[in-house]
Amino acid sequence: MNLRGLYTLFEKEVLRFLKVVVQTLLTPVATALLYLVIFGEVLAEHLEMYPGVGYGAFLVPGLVAMTLIQNAFANSSSSLIQSKMTGNLIFLLVAPISPLEFYLAFVAAAVVRGLMVGAGVWLVALAFVDLPLHSPALVLAFAVLGAAVLGGLGVIAGVWADKFEQLAAFQNFVVLPLSFLSGVFYSVHALPSPWDRLSWLNPFFYMIDGFRYGFLGVSDAPPLLSLGVSLAFLAAVSVVCLRMLAMGYKIRQ
């Protein structure tokens, strides 16, 4: 293992987003708060997702999770496509860094970005909403898992895409629908058939549902099932991603 190489790449990926914090941290937090204000205020009085849980308390964990995974995805995917398009990816490709080291560094940086944005949304939301914290360990576990899965998907998308438009398509047609349809704004039990049952096929649903359980202590799916599905999803994404990197797919001609 080239541990220092791995760490340096991780450090570079973190420094990269820290150099543009307005875009990478502040804007996503502000966007999430906008959702909170609109949906939370409008719907607060009418909805109670779980007995005794107000809509605000239900919504905030969902928004935190959604912002967290979208930013984890954005971090690795946009960094890779930029490096590919400007050509500076070669500096990484000529270095003695293995596919695994490459993958771990990008995913770890995506997790850091996801956690920072997620924590930002959570902290600011606390000013508006009374939010319990049932199990900090589970919250952290699902946060890291969700960010890692999306960080890995971001590497896949960044390696695959040749243009920004393709990356945007991946984001708009895969990441956004799956995260919106995973119970960010509602409990899937509230959906009409067959959407309620289809949600159970969406891996994003388990990541967000488990994350929410960490805060509220109640959820749609049993938390252990969510944990298992999320871990399996991470394993699948990692295998695909590592295969692509080992083949040099699109990045080594």
């Binding site: 541990l3 220092r4 003695p96």
Partner: peptide
């Protein structure tokens, strides 16, 4: 390399530190 490629996020010194780190 033949092309004048670079990472626009970093300074000259940072780029050299990073490259050195990639090599362990």
């Amino acid at each position: 390399p033949q092309e004048l490629v670079y990472d626009p996020f970093f300074t000259v010194r940072e780029i050299l530190w990073l490259q050195s780190g990639y090599f362990g």
